[in-house]
């Protein structure tokens, strides 16, 4: 029971307190590029969610049951990125077959996920954890990503209509908004004491 509670708390912590974009600096490129379309931002978020979860599911056993016993930890970068790249291809195929419209919405974002720091970042940080914690990390991270992307897209929609100095239009204001969001999320720090589950 204690394990389950720790698991849930860990997800919340990774999602909100140590947010993947705002606190851990992963996935910023896609974050900036998502623009102001709410629908596509949700689509992007979902795609990241899928890929992150599956990558975590595959990479952790791969690392702990194959690479480590063989003493080949140094191969992990190549192995992980190949796994992620192939997963993205497969997800792309799958979505194309199942729902053309969804595929159109995601458009170019799908191959972009391969270069999303969040996916590889999660897989890499999971190396040191046990399985439960790595799953909590993956879930929390991807949910946090979706959350922030969604909020961000909504804010940007509002920004479109506002009167900004020309220099700030586009990326600069996006970054400043991100900074303000980061300050907001910082206030949640220390809310949950995870003990050995927490990110060091």
């Amino acid at each position: 029971m204690e394990y389950v509670i720790s698991f849930i708390l860990a997800i919340i912590s990774y999602m909100v307190i140590d947010n993947v974009i705002l606190a851990r600096y992963f996935g910023i490129c896609s974050f900036i590029g998502v623009g102001n379309k709410i629908k596509s931002s949700i689509g992007m978020g979902l795609a990241v969610f899928f890929v992150t979860m599956m990558a975590a599911l595959v990479c952790w056993p791969l690392y702990n049951f194959i690479l480590v016993p063989a003493g080949m930890e140094y191969m992990e970068t190549i192995v992980f990125i190949l796994v992620i790249a192939s997963l993205v291809q497969m997800v792309g195929f799958f979505i194309k077959k199942k729902s053309m419209s969804l595929y159109k919405t995601l458009g170019i974002y799908l191959p972009l996920i391969t270069t999303n720091c969040a996916v590889l970042g999660v897989a890499e940080s999971n190396m040191a954890f046990d399985f439960g914690r790595s799953m909590a990390n993956a879930l929390g991270t991807s949910l946090g990503f979706v959350l922030v992307i969604f909020i961000f897209a909504c804010i940007r929609v509002k920004l479109e209509g506002s009167n900004l100095p020309k220099a700030f239009k586009g990326v600069p204001i996006a970054l400043i908004v991100a900074g303000l969001m980061a300050i907001v999320f910082m206030g949640l720090g220390g809310m949950i004491n995870l003990g050995t589950w927490g990110l060091i």
Binding site: A23, K166, G170, P172, L175, I176, A178, A182, I183, M186
Partner: peptide, 19 residues
């Protein structure tokens, strides 16, 4: 030093360059 600061600095830098 925090992440928020990083966003702000980069944002302002880009704004300056855009200006």
């Amino acid at each position: 030093k925090s992440s928020a600061g990083g966003f702000l600095v980069l944002g302002i830098a880009l704004a300056i360059i855009a200006a």
